[in-house]
């Protein structure tokens, strides 16, 4: 029992050391393996519904800016 607990603690420590993006990827895998399509769609709709309401024009501007920034980062990474 104690060995099992220390194994779990070790795993949790490893997860905490991951970046937020890596944690997100790990969670995606867990979610896809443990939930049905309907559960995932319902939960995504619930999260969407609680986000601040903004106009479509503003959402477009925010999304465009975020993706521009991501592509700049990727270009910089690929040059390294």
């Amino acid at each position: 029992m104690a060995r099992r607990r220390s194994h779990v603690e070790e795993l949790l420590r490893k997860i905490e050391q991951l970046s937020e993006v890596e944690q997100c990827e790990l969670l995606e895998g867990i979610i896809l393996r443990t939930r049905s399509r309907e559960q995932i769609l319902e939960e995504a709709d619930r999260i969407r519904a609680k986000l601040p309401r903004r106009s479509e024009r503003v959402i477009k501007r925010d999304a465009d800016a975020a993706i521009r920034e991501v592509r700049r980062d990727l270009t910089r990474e690929s040059r390294r």
Partner: peptide
Amino acid sequence: SRYPVVPREIAIFLAE
């Protein structure tokens, strides 16, 4: 900052 979501919620969107 404009659409506050934690990694678990982002993971749900990607899983979707």
